[in-house]
């Protein structure tokens, strides 16, 4: 049983807020597959229509996860694609939902395998709390408090909205 916690209007407003925070002449943006890449796509569109130049890449962090021993390899790995040189760049890392911070830790590891960026900042659409690592977002669209048995998901079929449902352990 899932419940919509943020409707499409709230998500739209949050994305606009994020665009204002990210705006600069040159934006280097990396989306984390798959939800983060979708958020990065829409942020890119909005930034470009307001006149910013955006360089985009996508990361799949499956090979960098710390849970291969417990859950096994991800059956659907999408390729990482970073068409620009990350060295010396100020990079925005984009994800849809920020939870434990482990995905971000893995993504940071992967980015550093491509080069040495000047800085990496984190932009997320939803921060649902429950961090297990010292990681915080620099730009957050929405906040909510979800318990350990809850799953918070961005739904991109039709109008974008955020759903929460309980996971039966």
């Amino acid at each position: 049983m899932s419940e919509t916690i943020f409707d499409s209007k709230t998500v739209e407003q949050a994305l606009d807020t994020m665009v204002r925070a990210l705006r600069s002449n040159e934006v280097y943006m990396i989306g984390i597959q798959q939800g983060g890449a979708r958020v990065a796509d829409t942020l890119q569109q909005r930034l470009e229509s307001s006149g910013c130049h955006v360089e985009r890449g996508n990361l799949d962090i499956s090979f960098y996860r710390d849970d291969l021993d417990t859950i096994g390899p991800n059956p659907e790995v999408r390729p990482s694609h970073l068409p620009f040189d990350v060295s010396g760049k100020n990079i925005w890392l984009v994800d849809d939902v920020l939870y434990t911070g482990r995905t971000i830790r893995a993504a940071l590891g992967e980015i550093f395998d491509y080069g040495r960026p000047a800085s990496i900042h984190l932009a997320v659409l939803v921060d649902r709390g429950g961090r297990e690592l010292p990681i915080a977002a620099d730009c957050t669209g929405l906040f909510c408090e979800a318990g350990v048995n809850d799953s918070v998901k961005l739904v991109t079929n039709g109008d974008w909205h955020i759903e929460q449902h309980e996971v039966v352990a």
Binding site: F63, D67, L68, D69, T70, I71, G72, P73
Partner: peptide, 8 residues
């Protein structure tokens, strides 16, 4: 990766 992965 498949052989070393967990979930067996």
């Amino acid at each position: 990766t498949a052989l070393c992965g967990g979930g067996q």
